[in-house]
């Protein structure tokens, strides 16, 4: 032990000073309550009085659900939403998957720019897209038609499908495709026999959430649907102010349950993939 130690002159340098701070958990749980309670509170109300909102509910009725299922306009709107959601999900899934694969596996120079353009509807305000589609369909004479709704929703869903499927493609081992091509498989064969089966979990999750997004979509539908093609959210939106009966509580409950089912379904698909990966290794 020579000079530097002495030069440093390091003695004991006191005790660390600090406090405890256990608040994070409390704050996080308050936030969870704030996030979840509004939708949960609607559930008991949906089984309550059918003329006005009473909380806590004094009785248990299925009246509001009965009312919903016996009112032809509500049923028509629900059917319309399901139809639009199914069709636009199918189209967006097809187009989006092809686009995602094309982008991920190409070495195009404009790849980045193309991606920005393709994904921008995900973030720019829905009302801008809605107004654009509205003026466009007005010009080509499709306003108010189911075709217009399906096209509009497809535009709205595609970026989401691309993002989800691209993430799935990024996880794939590209050398498997190279191997297939070395073995003589053509591009189409590789895509259908090698890529798509591996992408199944991403496709399931993209499809489920696309359906939900379309089924719940309000702004675009509000602008481009007509009296005969009203979707469920549009009917809900226009009836919030006018409807005296809390029938919306029943509809909201069912929509929330749909969200839960779809989330759980997607979670299940994700776990299946995890298990498949675990079984492989």
């Amino acid at each position: 032990m020579n000079s530097p130690a002495r030069k440093l002159n390091l003695g004991a340098i006191g005790k660390p000073v600090h406090w405890r701070f256990p608040l994070t958990g409390i704050m996080a749980w308050s936030a969870f309550a704030f996030l979840l309670l509004p939708s949960l509170i609607i559930i008991p109300i949906s089984f309550g009085n059918k003329n006005q909102i009473v909380f806590p509910p004094t009785a248990f009725h299925w009246d509001l659900y009965y009312l919903f299922f016996t009112t032809s306009t509500w049923i028509a709107a629900t059917t319309q939403s399901a139809k639009v959601a199914l069709l636009s999900t199918a189209i967006a899934l097809t187009l989006g998957t092809l686009a995602a694969y094309g982008i991920e596996r190409s070495r195009l120079r404009g790849k980045q720019l193309l991606l920005v353009v393709l994904l921008s509807p995900l973030l720019i305000p829905g009302v801008v897209t809605a107004l654009g589609l509205y003026s466009y369909f007005a010009v080509i004479g499709l306003s108010g038609s189911t075709t217009a709704l399906v096209m509009g929703h497809t535009v709205f869903l595609c970026p989401f499908v691309i993002v989800t499927v691209s993430a799935g493609i990024k996880e794939l081992d590209g050398s498997i495709e190279t191997a297939a091509s070395v073995m003589g498989a053509g591009r189409f064969k590789i895509f259908t026999a090698v890529v798509l089966p591996q992408l199944r979990p991403s496709l399931v999750s993209a499809g489920l959430f696309s359906f939900l997004m379309s089924f719940d979509e309000l702004v675009i539908s509000w602008f481009i649907s007509g009296a005969q093609t009203t979707t469920l959210p549009v009917k809900m939106y226009s009836s919030v102010q006018t409807e005296t009966s809390p029938i919306l509580a029943a509809i909201s409950t069912m929509l929330t349950i749909l969200s839960v089912i779809i989330c759980l379904g997607a979670e299940g698909a994700r776990n299946l993939r995890k298990k498949a990966v675990a079984a492989d290794s």
Partner: peptide, 26 residues
Amino acid sequence: IMVLLPFWTSILVKSYAFTVILGDAG
């Protein structure tokens, strides 16, 4: 999941829920 559930709940449902909670007769 507790963040994703509200994330995937329709904004219309959430807004409606707030009218029920915050309204004058809420």
